[in-house]
Design a binder for these strands. Sequence first.
DNA 1: AATCAATACTTGACGAAGGAAATTATTGAG
DNA 2: CTCAATAATTTCCTTCGTCAAGTATTGATT
Lengths: 384, 384
Amino acid sequence: MFPAAEGVAPAVTAVFTTVLTEGPISRVALARRLGLSSAAVTKAARPLIEAGYLEELAATERTGPGAGRPASPLAIRADREFFVGVKITGDELIGVVCDLRAQVRASAHRRLDAADVDHVLTQLGELVGDLLDGPGDYRARTRWLGLAVSGDVDHSTGLVRYSPFLRWHDVALAERAEKTTGLTVTVENDVKALTTAEQWFGEGVGADSFALVTVGAGIGCGLVVNGRIVSGAHGVAGEIGHISFDVNGPDCHCGSRGCVEAVAGADAIVSQARAVSGRPSLTFSDAVSLARSGDAAVGAVFARAGTAIGAGIAAVANLVGPARIVVSGEGLSAYDLFEPHIRASFQRQAFGAAAECPLSIRPLPFEEWARGAAAVSIKALVAS
Amino acid sequence: MFPAAEGVAPAVTAVFTTVLTEGPISRVALARRLGLSSAAVTKAARPLIEAGYLEELAATERTGPGAGRPASPLAIRADREFFVGVKITGDELIGVVCDLRAQVRASAHRRLDAADVDHVLTQLGELVGDLLDGPGDYRARTRWLGLAVSGDVDHSTGLVRYSPFLRWHDVALAERAEKTTGLTVTVENDVKALTTAEQWFGEGVGADSFALVTVGAGIGCGLVVNGRIVSGAHGVAGEIGHISFDVNGPDCHCGSRGCVEAVAGADAIVSQARAVSGRPSLTFSDAVSLARSGDAAVGAVFARAGTAIGAGIAAVANLVGPARIVVSGEGLSAYDLFEPHIRASFQRQAFGAAAECPLSIRPLPFEEWARGAAAVSIKALVAS
DNA sequence: AATCAATACTTGACGAAGGAAATTATTGAG
DNA sequence: CTCAATAATTTCCTTCGTCAAGTATTGATT
């Protein structure tokens, strides 16, 4: 399988991971970066090159003084292997094929008529078939399938303990999906999957700690601290949506009041917008249009939501002090309406140097969720 | 120095750390616990025993089936080495001598007339002399001094970057204290030091993650996630005191409003108690007495403070999901006034399973800060 | 052009660390 | 008094990574 599979040589994994995340890099630079001797890097790189996972690039133009043998950087051979990632929602499957660098090569989706496990698996099997047997001829070079599900997921066993949106309890999803597809399956919580993608292939690269905040139906948060994802001892972590920033705020379905989600969740925004506009059938995109066309009352709803999100982000910054924070999600398709209020609120409530934490605020293509699932399976390959 | 000093054998450190924190434990149990072969544990334990750090206890009564050779558990020889820990505040030095198990063997303190570095160092030298040359004859078996300071501290270099209470900027404290005392000095932020003590020798033992909340002049929080202390990329972490739980709450000195500290800090409690009681010179202990004797208005001040602390703790639980939370600090000498409100507020705002996180609420002897400093130096010994 | 310094990489001998399996130690049960 | 069970140790071996020496490839200097 993977060159380091049996007898796991730490250096092999370290070298591969570093080349994967920090791009073409010479052996000497790797040695410095990893605290290894250059001899160790040479030895670790060889099986990876022989197995086709790495390749040597032509010497690049020199930097520094000018004398000396030029480096021949190691790079990932992105098309050595492909990975399928699928995000499972209550009414849809979104699937992608990614290469080793987590670049999306193909995508497809399927509507779900029901969320029962059998139906989902049937559709999943067909979706994977469409992706792998369609143009691109990925089938032969694909062994892994990553699934992303919202809710409480045990990544190590592939068990979905409880997923409220899907109404699943204790579903052995990895096992069943392996039977259906013949691929090796990883299952992960959707926010954690997205966080993994960001950690290895996005803005989290090189950062020892960072936070990813997702804004959509719910407000979630994936956390990386000391280079590792935070899971929560009781299965709860990153519940930024249920931090209360206003003791007198509106009731939240969780039983508390003034939660971020009760003000900034998609449902909350729609119902507030309906109330202030007097239009009971208004949708989220109607609200966005109204706000953009200058409706002050609806604009204030978005402002209030942005302020709440900023408060939640400030709490993250004050508590764990991530190196950077990415704010993303479907809700941020209207990010122009949120952004200034998120930033202002964050600056107001971040304590001292925490206010220096860079925020990236950007919308999130829905495919990203599926890409996150694929990223988890890439990580699983490396660990295998 | 330490048996594993040169050529750092990971197993030696792992064995020592585990015996230190998880008490007398047999080699076989250690092997299971650490994922090592029993042969490796035998080899790692030998130099530790020879150096006098560990000893073999007599076989204990058996558990389980009943047949087989009884285990001879390994235990720390607590009096093998002693450690001085000193907490430096703006007007006092509190010092202790601890043994290897971080048990306090002696303590002393000194008032400070000024907080300038020279004066502090002079007093520190005398305090250390008093502790080591007094009864107990610790001098010969003491090589380490741990210092705990509030503010921004670079533990790796022993530099105090900025300490607001002491008004210190960029003081090379470790270096200077080593010259003064002749001991090897570690410097750490006071809350982190206390957290270390709790992680290795207190309620954090065995927990992969936990939080320590200190209630006093300020409200602080030390966090351990995935077994490691959280430091914050920008030097800020655990600032639970500046999480806002009420957008319309009172102004805080940090520039925001409704911060936990602005309601539950010692100063905030005193000034609120003065306002409601109409006694402008009332002290913190006066407020405690009034509340305990049934003064409803002053009682409400404490209730409000407890509610604020509970909100902050709920934010920690929702975000990082620690295995347990310890609430402690000078302010909790009046913990009977806080406790029910902390718990009620926590339960209300903790999301889902986060509410299952056990809270330990207890007062904190002031010496504990100094013990924390000593614990950091014990950790430094092990890492050396 | 020949040489040299500088840097990148490779090779092979060595040593440290930990594992596997056999061996010794010590107990309780039959 | 033997046997089964568990704990600890010993011996031998593999693996991993370092060290130091050597090869490769460049620009600069003579």
